[in-house]
Design a protein around this nucleic acid. Structure first.
Lengths: 336, 336
DNA sequence: CTGAAAGCGCTTACAG
DNA sequence: CTGAAAGCGCTTACAG
């Protein structure tokens, strides 16, 4: 038995328009107190909940925000998703979570879903979406905010984290600890995140007049496994050529640490390891991980506010959040 | 410039009805091939995406599923959320993620949102929602599936994991390893999950004629911190009275392990530790964690299929999934 | 202070 | 094979 505004109107002996006004608190003060009370009582008694779709059809907001992330089962994005859900709730939005699973087709399918649902805005983390697709959406009046990845040519506001500066600090921290030969494991290098982290590493070495050595730089893809394997190679090829490893993600850092430990070496006394992201587990790991914090909540709040206060010229907004070094116990001073 | 079906109809020189038929592949074969082709071409050219809300208003499905979890920032639920998003995609649904953050008011607010959005079904994990609220929803025609927590009196199908059997196996595993004094740390004990895990532990001890000792049983709340603290107490009060700890969650197990390690003892040679959930990090932790796997994907698939194939009598369905012991390296044979 | 009527963007019998 | 018309559940000028 699904109730409509007409049913409530009939029961209350008023018109649907009046019920609507009560619900939306329109004509406040102009309405007879007793009419309002009666309608309110009946709504409550019968458990009537207005149809948001009908409302939205009339031009009102859907109060839904769509989110597209690259992966739903990776730690960092999971924390991001959780944070978005919470911030959306605080701002009065429901959250439609979509994961492209790094698949362009799937991503486009989700974009269509979000468009057809007429969400009030979309937060996108994507390294493969075309500028054209983003601009089409914006031209149709759907606010889009890019997070973490820039899409050249897209006329959408963007919220970034200063990964470059974060990586610079992390590397400098290792250098200050006395490390001169610092290995680096890249993330999925098609991403801006990975490129920026790498850029910060290089810059720090150069500022300190340290050599950038190709054999101390390996490709990875942000996963535990890739961190483990890259470290395995380092350890096999040049075990005495480095004293620290900077990993582009915490997960890779865990892989690196595990690999080192399994070979009977110690972190941080034999090798220092530093990560990036500061996921939940970094504080729990043994040794706890020194890493660079990505301010998920801040990013989310800015992105949602951009959607909430969307204006035509808002398209050009660019916001950059700070990434802070979090010192724990996976790095030690060089003694020799 | 937002397009409607009328715009497309006008451009194509046909009626909205015809456009609708093309989109929904109605009257297949009865339609002139060239009309169909033309309409399709124009839809594509102008990037027209039908309004799902208008469709739904006419009585069609929204293709949206709502999910209510207790916490959005806890590891196990994050994996659950990620899995649900993926399974929903596979089954053709968008996913509206809601987190009650263990707050009854917030949970009810979300229930209203999901109802107002007229989702095709709701998956609920809740220890506090009233049967009345669930039944109201069902009577309004919204399919509900309860997961993990039973709500007595609710006339909704339910999908459970056999935590009792899982805990029984885990405890038996420790006993078979030679452990006779096994400590236990409960989860948030208002949950069925925690109670069932505890019940399995007790049953295993009794089957093996081992004493159930109150001082070896402590309260916890599933978190890392509570696992750490309970272990701290065990170690202080009766360090020689137990040789293994069974924790009601992996997170608590990590806390236990960390606490033991910080006191200079070893896991598993001094104390064996076993967890529950098998979250991603369990395989990565050092030592890797022996635990009981909760089949998230299976649970999700069953729940979504129940929604998809909803019938009146489906309300009585009950499905119980198996929880399997996953042996890793945090438990060892007793030597003394 | 309140109601009747139009209309949001669709789909679907009903005609033809 | 296709169109005109009604209606899904709301809100909002427009009247009164």
């Amino acid at each position: 038995m699904k109730l409509t505004i007409k049913d409530i109107a009939k029961i209350a002996g008023v018109s649907p328009a009046t019920v609507s006004r009560v619900i939306n608190k329109k004509n406040k003060g102009y309405m007879k107190k007793e009419t309002e009370q009666k309608v309110l009582r009946i709504i409550k008694e019968f458990g009537y909940v207005p149809d948001a779709r009908a409302k939205a059809l009339r031009g009102l907001k859907t109060h839904l925000i769509g989110v597209i992330v690259p992966e739903a089962l990776s730690c960092a994005y999971q924390e991001f998703i959780g944070t978005i859900v919470n911030v959306c709730y605080e701002r009065g939005y429901g959250t439609l979570i979509c994961s492209s699973e790094n698949n362009a087709k799937r991503e486009l399918a989700y974009v269509r879903v979000l468009e057809s649902q007429r969400v009030d805005g979309i937060i996108i983390i994507s390294e493969r979406l075309k500028a054209q697709a983003v601009n089409d959406l914006i031209n149709k009046g759907i606010p889009i905010v890019l997070v973490d990845e820039d899409i050249p040519g897209a006329e959408a506001p963007i919220v970034l984290t200063d990964y470059y500066e974060g990586a610079l600090q992390a590397t400098q921290y290792l250098i200050d600890l006395g490390h001169k030969r610092i290995a680096f494991i890249k993330g999925r290098h098609t991403t801006l995140s990975s490129q920026e982290r790498f850029r910060g590493y290089i810059e720090a070495l150069q500022r300190n007049s340290l050599d950038v050595e190709d054999r101390l730089i390996k490709a990875g893809d942000f996963t535990y496994k890739s961190g483990y394997e890259a470290t395995e190679t380092f350890l096999k090829e040049s075990p005495d050529d480095f004293t620290a490893i900077f990993c582009s993600s915490d997960l890779m850092a865990f892989g690196a640490i595990r690999c080192i430990q399994e070979r009977g070496k110690n972190v941080p006394t034999d090798y220092s390891v530093i990560g990036f992201d500061d996921i939940y587990f970094s504080a729990i790991n043994n040794p706890s991980l020194t890493t660079v914090d990505v301010p998920f909540r801040k990013l989310t709040e800015i992105a949602i506010d951009m959607i909430k206060n969307w204006t035509e010229k808002g398209k050009e907004k660019r916001s950059i959040c700070e990434a802070k070094l979090v010192v724990r116990r996976s790095c030690a001073k060089m003694v020799k």
